[in-house]
């Protein structure tokens, strides 16, 4: 059996291109795809909201935006809070959810804060994590911090038996 280290080194040589995406081929309209940098994106103008990609994702990484708000079912918050009505900036575009248009009715997912990456910033979860538990970086660069971290023996990935070669590594 391969050790995690040797497996990671061999897959790292192929970098992003070897990641097997189950969500992309099932989309009937080609609305979701992998960008050259490896981040999987959803085109909200193209997405018809059939949710087939959600069923295909083994990691439950995709969600359907039904158009509800966090305060909708919560007691003591009878009206919409201002922070919920703020626009979202997915994929460099501006979306206004209260209008009921996209991304309401679309499938959404983590896009590693593309709007921040484009400005040279880390994803918000990495920046704001009080335990400094998350890292983000490019595996293509052998000298990067994440390249060093994924060669550690305590690294593992979820559902490797599916052959999807996910790019999220857990350090235990």
């Amino acid at each position: 059996m391969n050790t995690p280290m040797s497996r990671d080194v061999s897959s790292r040589a192929h970098a992003w291109s070897v990641t097997v995406l189950l969500c992309v081929p099932v989309c009937p309209v080609g609305a979701t795809y992998k960008r050259p940098d490896g981040i999987v994106e959803i085109n909200c103008e193209q997405c018809i909201g059939c949710r087939y990609c959600i069923t295909a994702c083994p990691y439950a990484a995709r969600v359907f935006d039904s158009g509800d708000f966090y305060t909708f079912y919560t007691a003591h918050t009878p009206k919409l809070q201002p922070y919920e009505t703020l626009p979202t900036y997915e994929y460099g575009k501006v979306f206004n959810r209260p209008a009921g248009k996209s991304p309401v009715g679309n499938v959404r997912k983590c896009h590693f804060c593309l709007h921040r990456l484009n400005n040279g910033m880390l994803p918000e979860c990495v920046t704001s994590c009080v335990g400094v538990a998350t890292y983000f970086g490019g595996l293509n660069d052998p000298d990067s911090l994440v390249s060093e971290l994924v060669t550690k023996p305590n690294v593992h990935r979820l559902k490797e038996e599916l052959g999807t070669k996910p790019r999220v590594y857990y350090l235990l």
Partner: peptide
């Protein structure tokens, strides 16, 4: 989720789906 976008299955179909 977007019933009015259904025609995109005809204009931009993906044969792997």
């Amino acid at each position: 989720g977007h019933p009015l976008h259904f025609w995109k299955v005809y204009t931009n179909p993906q044969p792997t789906s």
